[in-house]
Design a protein around this nucleic acid. Structure first.
Lengths: 316, 316
DNA sequence: GAGATTATATAACCTTGAGTTATGAAAATA
DNA sequence: TATTTTCATAACTCAAGGTTATATAATCTC
């Protein structure tokens, strides 16, 4: 004897609301509809569900037992509805975000922390890669959002990009470095120092090479490579090494007094840090919400940077 | 966002069976039916439930969460189906059985115990009353079965009666009573002894009066009245009192050696102990099963009684 | 107990979800 | 690449269940 789950719901509603009319109302259905459904059910089951000739409908023992199950169905239903509501409202779900390592570690991870304070039910799956890989992953729907430096002119087909911040890089060193704090610097002055090399695929690496080419150095001393931001900060603090980092990373770390930026302008292609995504992949509400959140965070960050530069409290 | 419980079932079935086809099969539906239902659901919810372009259908996170609720619905459904199955099979439910006190206590309660060993999920609601009341309660559907002595000719309209046993009563006393064990007895010999009087509404009371009228006693000494069978047995055991009890009650108590029956024939109206019920009240499977069980028990009891009488092991 | 009130059932009609088979299209597999 | 597997679509049918209007039956009230 197969019983329809919606019938169990109806039974529970009638029993719990003390009558057919009230039950129908609680279910958002008309009274005749429920009445007939009950009649059909009783006929199919071959047993009374409600006592005969009682006017506030009185459940039989069997009906009471079925109502117990009906309540479970109703509860599951409500839970499911809530789940869906939160999901389409972008308050639950998953966001797969990938980006270039230093930028993710130095800037984005902090914003993710803020995001998860606001939306604790959204799970973030973070990964690291460079632009080419990120594009591919967006295309194959292995990623929802990529955050990386990008020349908008070189944007791959079928991907969209929204700039968040100027993409320039700076030469960074320890605040205790001999060159730190000098108001101006000639390129040749940096020649003696060892370098912490960014990964070869990184745009930072290209910037490093162009800097050194600019002062005629084709061979340079790499004292360390392969580390993430945390390692690099430790190395820098205890050495005279130099490295190339995104300006924004250095800015974000200003409070920790872990880094100094040398006043040397690095030339590089027209490049912005920004979000990249595939409009072909219809994005989930959680992803939409994440992207908007990141936009807002960077909007704040840009004004913060502007203020700092105006006040000259912190110079590059 | 209201979600239909049956949709949750479908989701759970697909997820748990590793694919749409298998899920449809598990649900006993055709594959296209389930496919379309899923498509409609996704459209209504406005979110993917299964990853795009994956051939064994791969649930999304949201889908997994909904499947959890779907499993609850499926479980409730199965429980409900089992409940109904047991109910219509007469293996669960309620039986409201009423009867005359001594007969219920002395004979029926033992059978009910057997019945509940066989059908532990059937609840028995027992009550005591005499024929007139029982008829009324059957009519008003306050009772499913009545078990009482009845003259089939005097059966109320609209009630049915099935005889179980000869309805005669006997004069009972303690096995240690001065009259007990005598092979024959004249009516006058019982005159000196006090009586335990059955309730006035009881047919036993009428029998007692007719016995005493037969020996010219209009006034008789009532030493005790108002007790149930258990009390009466205790009183009888410790006194020389006499009382009137159904023959079958005395028979059932033969093993306990608690009673003796005097060899005096009591005249009474043509009367049988039997079951009475109202065919107007469509009876539940549990009630049907109970009635059949009682019939079978009495069938056994009748042969047992016959054997005993043939073997003369126990005389009345 | 008659009348008023409330609760449920029935009627007539319509919409839609869901069942079917047949078949097409796209992944997965060999 | 060819084959198999798995899912989607199409076209049709049916019955459950939605509606409003109204009848009927319990219960309440005086």
């Amino acid at each position: 004897m197969k019983i329809d789950a919606r019938h169990l719901e109806i039974i529970a509603a009638i029993v719990d609301n003390g009558g057919l009319t009230e039950g129908a109302e609680a279910l958002g259905k008309s009274q005749p509809s429920v009445s007939r459904t009950v009649a059909m059910l009783e006929a199919r089951v071959g047993a009374r569900l409600f006592e005969k000739n009682r006017r506030p409908l009185q459940p039989t023992d069997l009906c009471q037992a079925l109502a117990v199950e009906g309540r479970k169905v109703l509860a599951a239903n409500q839970t499911a509805s809530a789940l869906v509501r939160r999901y389409i409202d972008g308050k639950s779900g998953v966001v797969r975000v990938g980006g270039t390592p230093f930028f993710m570690d130095g800037v984005i991870s902090g914003m993710i922390a803020e995001f998860q304070r606001a939306y604790p039910e959204i799970r973030i799956e973070q990964s690291y890669a460079y632009a080419a890989d990120l594009s591919r992953q967006l295309d194959s729907n292995a990623l929802d959002v990529a955050i990386c430096p990008m020349d908008p002119a070189a944007l791959p087909e079928k991907l969209e990009f929204s700039a968040l911040l100027d993409g320039r890089n700076v030469i960074a060193c320890s605040p205790t470095h001999p060159l730190a704090g000098k108001p101006s610097l000639r390129l040749s002055e940096i020649a003696p120092y060892p370098w912490i090399a960014p990964p070869v695929e990184s745009p930072l690496y290209q910037d490093l090479r162009s800097i050194l080419a600019g002062i005629g150095m084709t061979d340079f001393k790499v004292s360390f490579s392969g580390g993430t931001l945390a390692s690099i900060l430790n190395i820098l603090a205890r050495s005279d090494a130099l490295t190339v980092l995104p300006y924004s990373v250095v800015f974000m770390l200003r409070r920790q007094q872990a880094l100094a930026a040398l006043p040397i302008r690095i030339n590089h292609p027209e490049r912005s840090l920004g979000q990249m995504w595939s409009p072909a992949q219809s994005d989930r509400p959680s992803v939409r919400r994440f992207r908007r959140f990141i936009d807002a965070e960077f909007s704040n960050l840009r004004t913060t940077i502007m203020k700092h530069e105006q006040n000259s409290l912190w110079r590059r």
